[in-house]
Amino acid sequence: MSVLAVAEHRNGEIRDVSFELITAGRELAEDRGEPLHVVVIGNPVDHFASELNLDGVDTVHTFDRNEEFNHNVYLQVIVQLVDAIDPSTILLPHTSNSLDFAPALAVRLNRPIVTDVVSIKTEDGLIVTREMYGSKVETTIGIRSDRSVITIRPSEWDPTIAPGKAAVEAVNVSIDEDAIRSTVTGFGEVAAGDVDITEADVLVSVGRGIDSEENLSLVFDLADALDATVAASRPIIDNDWLPANHQVGQSGKVVSPQVYIAIGISGAVQHVAGMKDSDTIVAINSDPNAPIFDIADYGIVDDLFDVVPEVIEQFDL
């Protein structure tokens, strides 16, 4: 048996999560005494293969297809590859594309799937750790099957950068074009706009805790007082209270200002993905267990409607 990691790429480049995936894959393969296989589907596939030829990888399987991502193609290639190499564990990154693909792969292969995993241990079977309830609770899950599909949370494993000595093999599979029932017709950007929050030195970022659109003025007043720029978590954008270019996070902007002040933001993983590299993080939240405090440098556990006006007053003096 083996461990199979499914690499992800975009715009002709391997995505960082794929290098993290190789680390997770190598650790698991070593634990289990199995070889590590990586598969990459797309184009330019030779370029991808050489980027993925990293420490611990035994074989890189390539499938040349001039297409960004198509789950029907991915499914066909990987199912046939799995037939050939019978991997115990299939690892994918927990990303938008794997949300679109990994569960179908698991069902087609009749394997259990566990997603968004933050650690993997080998005991009798595999024991994985994942979070629930917006990261407020941690669970361990035992997988009692020799074969499984696991998606791993981005940024939990260090990327592998050391070069490897992998064999590169083109996957020899045939694609049934009739089974392709989805077609990518283009790409777009969710939003451009007036401000560029990635340029700001100080961001005042507001979340669902602000409760209503009217209350946003409080946050703008604070930003004024601090000469800062206003950013937000996703619900604020979903509600159309601020334009989409203010959104921080996985599906928004990645920011790393000198100071990031999170107000009424819980610190969901998709939000944290966009701001964890800020120099200093301040969080104001009434819930002492809010996960935002795990990455904050300074925290105030209190009602934002009591604290924020006081801060404004301090600076307006």
Binding site: P112, V114, I127, E131, M132, S135, K136, V137, E138, T139, T140, I141, G142, I143, R144, S145, S148, A283, N289, P291, F293, D294, I295, A296, D297, Y298, G299, I300, V301, D302, D303, D306, V307, E310, V311, E313, Q314
Partner: peptide
């Protein structure tokens, strides 16, 4: 199902957060 919950706990925080304590006026200051 071949997946089973084995344990549930509050995550151990590796946080180095410094909590500012006191009344809103004190923490704001």
């Amino acid at each position: 199902s071949s997946i089973h919950l084995l344990s549930m706990n509050e995550p151990e925080s590796e946080s180095e957060v410094r909590f500012l304590e006191g009344t809103p006026e004190e923490t704001a200051t």
